[in-house]
């Protein structure tokens, strides 16, 4: 019974959604939108669970003075401060998203720069990963190295200035072998996704229930 009920719910929900994809007539055509609304409501409540988990795990780190507990203090203070500032913005300006509100100040001058900083790290990681990936250890890695050099040269002005070959060749690499491989992976992934969805709907795949 403990497994039968979730499996039945999964089967019926999956079946309704598949049917609604092929039958646009009411009430089937509206099912997907309706279920998305339900999903949004459930997601809203689980956000509370997420915040509860976050607070409890960091509170535990602080009480046990685990390694790096100071970071947990910063996180909890930041969490509470952002909520308080949001409420102040609502009272003072009618909305926390008002451009003059302190909430937007925190967003613009703390969150956005931090996000940009993390994203900027990608440049250095690409350099280090490329260095390892492009080492010509065998003929396959050499092929990768040569292709990468051609594509990089073909996409910058100096490549075209050196020879018309580079822009032409990079275009060919990107639109023929690269795209063919990409589409092959996408077709396989799409079939795999459909297969797994069917396994879940039919109750064959139960590992998510364990």
């Amino acid at each position: 019974m403990r497994r039968a009920v979730p499996l039945a719910i999964t089967f019926l929900t999956g079946l309704f959604l598949v049917v609604s994809f092929f039958i646009p007539h009411r009430p089937f055509g509206e099912l997907e939108q309706r279920l998305l609304v339900w999903f949004a409501i459930v997601a809203g409540f689980t956000m509370l669970l997420g915040v509860d988990n976050l607070i409890r795990s960091h509170a535990r780190k602080i009480t046990r003075t685990s390694e790096g507990w100071g970071h947990s203090v910063v996180l909890l203070v930041g969490l509470v401060a952002t909520v308080v500032v949001g409420v102040i913005g609502r009272v003072q300006f009618g909305s926390p998203f008002h451009l003059q509100s302190p909430f937007m100040f925190i967003y613009s001058y703390t969150i956005v720069p931090l996000q940009a900083t993390m994203f900027a790290l990608l440049a250095f990681f690409i350099a280090s990963a490329s260095y390892r990936a492009f080492r010509a250890r065998n003929w396959v890695a050499t092929l990768l190295l040569v292709s990468a050099v051609i594509v990089m040269l073909g996409r910058i002005p100096i490549g075209a200035a050196m020879s018309e070959f580079f822009p032409w060749m990079q275009e060919w690499i990107m639109t023929v072998p690269q795209l063919a491989a990409k589409r092959g992976i996408q077709i396989g992934a799409a079939l795999g996704a459909v297969s797994m969805s069917l396994r879940i709907i039919l109750g064959i795949e139960r590992s998510y229930l364990s």
């Binding site: 990963a129 490329s130 390892r132 990936a133 990409k182 992976i185 996408q186 396989g188 992934a189 079939l191 795999g192 996704a193 297969s195 797994m196 396994r199 795949e205 590992s207």
Partner: peptide, 27 residues
């Protein structure tokens, strides 16, 4: 299954499950 991220994983990880392989993993 994100084809644009697969090269990064191939470059930086020891093993990479490509596309459909993650859906086949459970089986």
């Amino acid at each position: 299954k994100e084809t644009s991220q697969l090269p990064f994983f191939v470059a930086a990880c020891d093993y990479t499950l490509i596309g459909e392989e993650i859906f086949a993993a459970s089986s």
